[in-house]
Computed example of a mutant assay.
Amino acid sequence: MPHHDILATPKDLGFTFPAEWFPHRATWLTFPHNEASWQGDKLAKMRPQYFEFIKQISAGEHVGFIANDKNLKQYIIKELNKINVDLSKIEFLIKPTNDAWCRDHGPSFVINKETGQKMIVDWGHNAWGGKYPPYDDDNRTPKAVAVYLNLPIIEPGIIMEGGAVEFNGAGSLLTSKSCLLNLNRNPHLNQQQIEQVLCDFYGIEQILWVEGGIVGDDTDGHIDDTTRFINEDTVVACVESNQSDENFEILNTNLKMLKEMRLTNGKQLNIIELPMPKAVIIDGFRTPGSYANFLICNAGVIVPVFNNPNDQTAINILETAFPNRKVIPLLATEIIWGQGSFHCLSQQEPLI
């Protein structure tokens, strides 16, 4: 096993990865500066939408920026001032970065609810199977955050991305076979070995598997574009009603698998079906537009919308699904060109 040299895992020590609706101290983001994800003028175009996202998060918690250098920090401060963001809510960690997808390369925070301790799990990051080198600066991010926050850190020694896993906060983890079992991640491990590492380092009891992900998603099928826990026994699951759409079959397969799942207490999942947007095509490229790539934060649920015929239907469904939280729809029409949205860009730090 990859962690044979670790004497005690987070699970052994009573740590677990809390659900996203657990109160946050902060949300961490790696500020986008590299044109590899948003080429040409697209980086400048996505930034107003990105800053609006920051503004909404900062209404309820701190925002931690991982910024490539001091000049970028000054630029961020200037832009946040323009839109009246409370700078006392903003923190900066200056370190070299490669890309913006903090969900995948950022720190994974596990907590011990009994002792009030917090720890960072430092999963390996290889840019979704080596697709976008270089990624070594991003791979060093969890360690830098641990130093900044003065938190203990532990390395499982395998490749893992935050967008590949969903948690119900009660012992269950939901993921997709197309991503975590892909040979470009951990070819030396089988499904059972991967499950063991996930249970040990996230402090959970069971792994639930759906099949795959949506068209345009270059991560090999991250769960945060298709299926999300919204409470201990409920998921929202993306569905495609148009049978000739490329996403129809895979989302239908996932839905069937979800219906057969049982939680640790033997219960079936409550499944709320969430429509896909009508294909979000930019410059002839089909992006992985999905209403499921929302972020649950202290201020509410920030949902990507796309000036799309299905936007309002999705908002209505999510407002019903989250009766005690404000649903905050934000345009992600420019952000989505980078093949991810609000959840992919952010990683929450629990408050404990």
Rank of each mutant, 00 (worst) to 15 (best):
A26F: 01
L29H: 01
G14W: 04
A44M: 11
T9P: 04
T27H: 03
K45M: 13
A19E: 09
W28N: 07
F22R: 03
E20T: 03
D12M: 10
Q49L: 11
E35F: 12
L29V: 10
I6L: 05
A36L: 11
F31M: 02
F17S: 06
F17M: 15
P48Q: 12
W28R: 07
G14T: 07
D41N: 14
T27K: 00
F17C: 13
L43E: 03
W28I: 14
L29F: 03
T16S: 13
T30V: 10
M46E: 00
F15R: 00
E20L: 00
I6P: 00
P18W: 01
E35D: 14
S37D: 15
A8D: 10
D41F: 12
D12K: 11
P10V: 06
S37F: 14
P18A: 07
H24Q: 10
W21P: 02
T9C: 09
K11P: 03
L7A: 14
G14R: 04
L13F: 07
N34F: 09
K11R: 13
P32V: 01
H33L: 05
N34T: 10
Q39D: 14
A36F: 11
L7W: 05
K45T: 10
P18E: 04
F22G: 03
P48I: 08
A19G: 10
F15W: 02
P10L: 09
W21S: 01
R47W: 06
R47T: 04
H4R: 14
A8V: 11
S37K: 15
